[in-house]
Simulated scan of single mutants.
Amino acid sequence: MYRIAVIGDYDSIYGFAALGLDTFPVTAHEEAAELLHRLAAEGYGIIYITEAWMAELKQEAAKYQDQVIPAIIQIPGIAGNTGAGVAGVKKSVEVAVGSDILFGDD
């Protein structure tokens, strides 16, 4: 069975520990990048990352974009939803169905 990790600032992720997820608060880019690669190598199946940290780790996360595992999923932080995670989901769905799902020019 795969484990699930959550990466982000402490205030945004500490509640996920109550759900049994492994939480990893980070404060520096280098620390977060190293952690992402370590968790992927250790076989985590899903890695949730706050949108703010995903913006910082785009290049590092791109390495795993075409891989099934780990699935790297953006989540809102304590400051709220930036919409970055939703855009990624919309694009993934559009690729799967072969059409713009909102019929817009986005």
Rank of each mutant, 00 (worst) to 15 (best):
A52R: 13
Y14K: 13
V86K: 02
R38K: 15
T50V: 14
Y10M: 02
T27R: 14
R3T: 13
L39S: 02
A41D: 11
V86W: 00
D22N: 11
D106C: 07
E60Q: 13
D9P: 08
H37E: 12
A84S: 05
A96E: 01
G85A: 07
A18E: 04
E31H: 08
I75L: 09
A32P: 06
A17M: 13
I69R: 09
I49Y: 01
Y64C: 12
Y2C: 11
A18W: 02
T82W: 10
F103C: 06
R38N: 11
T27K: 15
P76S: 06
V89L: 05
E56N: 07
H37I: 09
A18I: 10
G80S: 04
K91T: 11
A55T: 13
A18G: 05
A32L: 03
S92G: 08
D22I: 03
E42L: 12
R3P: 13
V93P: 05
V86F: 01
Q65G: 08
M54T: 03
E94T: 07
R38Y: 04
E94A: 07
Q74D: 05
A96Q: 02
G85Y: 02
E34T: 12
D11Q: 03
Q67T: 15
M54F: 07
D100H: 12
G80Y: 04
R38G: 10
A52E: 14
Q67I: 12
D9I: 04
D11F: 01
V93A: 09
P70G: 14
G98D: 00
T82Y: 10
Y2R: 12
T23V: 15
Y44F: 13
H29R: 15
Y10F: 03
D100P: 14
T27I: 12
S12Q: 05
A61Q: 14
V86A: 05
E60A: 13
I101Y: 06
G85S: 08
E30P: 02
E31P: 11
Q74W: 00
S12E: 05
T50G: 14
D22S: 13
S92Q: 10
Y64L: 14
M54A: 12
G20T: 04
Q74P: 15
V89Q: 01
A18T: 10
V26S: 11
D100G: 10
L39Y: 00
Y44T: 08
G43K: 06
P25T: 09
Y48K: 07
G15P: 03
V6C: 10
G8M: 09
F24Y: 14
G80W: 04
V86I: 06
V93D: 02
A79K: 15
Q67E: 15
H37V: 13
I78L: 09
L102A: 15
R38M: 13
M54Y: 06
V89S: 01
G43N: 07
V93W: 01
V97E: 02
G85T: 09
G43F: 03
R3F: 08
L57A: 01
F24K: 08
L21A: 05
I46R: 02
I47G: 10
I73M: 12
E42K: 09
L36A: 10
E34V: 06
P70V: 12
G104I: 04
D11H: 02
G85R: 03
E94G: 09
G45Y: 02
G20I: 04
Q59I: 08
V97F: 07
F103E: 08
R38V: 15
I49H: 03
T23A: 15
D106F: 09
I47W: 05
Y10I: 03
I13Q: 00
I72L: 04
G83W: 03
G8L: 06
M1W: 00
L35T: 06
I72W: 01
V93N: 03
